[in-house]
Amino acid sequence: MKKAKFYPWYFALISLIIYTVFSVVPGLIGIGYSFTDWSAYSRELHFVGWKNFAKVFSGNSEYLRYILNTLLFTVVTCTFKTGLGLLFAVLLNKGVKLKNLHRGILYMPSVLPILVTGLTFSSILNPKYGFLNAFLKSVGLGFLAQKWLTDPHIAFGSVMAVDVWRGTGYIMTMLIAGIVAISPTYYEAASIDGANAWQQFKYITLPMLRQTLAVTIVLNVIYGLKAFDIIYALTNGGPGHRTEVMNTAVFNMMSKGLYAEGTTISSVMFVFMVIIGYFMVKILTKDEVVE
């Protein structure tokens, strides 16, 4: 059977065109525009060399802080989502009544629009009339009440906490699927050998979950580096750019007409993601074999 004839290449044409035109080409020409002074205020384009990149990477630049914020957001939310997700996955595996109801509840936030989650928490975290501070006061913990989203020292933590609230259920669900796939015979053998719960977790569950954990971490990292909605809805980068990440910064520059700066930051992110993306995709597509 001739593969070229019966599996014609043009079956993939629509996907290739749409994806190339709207995802890849903007990324590539964006790199080109990074070397110009493109802006809303001038019709002419001039080549400016590495000037924009120099601006981004110079020691005390604002832009560098946005990049660092993005990385911090990614690392912190990924760590908490994975850690808590693993804890809940193990917790909701045995000995809990209405297990599926619990799982369903925890998964719920990840199907809601991220923007809506952000808007909702902007009310809950409001210092004056928000639910959280009112609740803390009512149980006598009023001293813990904070200006969650406007205090520069706390705002970023609050934003990340809301994102962990939103994303943990999804990670938990993936890990549960991974735990369910582990053959119970391992645990039986281990308990005959006298292994306690912790030892079983450490020597069976964790190693068997390696691939699943790798995938969830990759997905978390991809999400974290592209985060926008949650920050836009909660703080829009404020107070004083304390919670600004790359995508919110790009949006703000775009609305100010600073196209060259916007595309430069996007391009830095694009090149970085293509390089690490190759390895991430390798992890995601690992073990795929024809059956």
Binding site: Y33, L225, N247, Y259, M273, G277, V281
Partner: peptide
């Protein structure tokens, strides 16, 4: 094609497209 799951969209130059 699958790399598209990872790469970010450059919204600024996408506007041009």
């Amino acid at each position: 094609l699958v790399l598209g799951m990872v790469i970010p969209i450059n919204y600024v130059s996408l506007m041009k497209i």
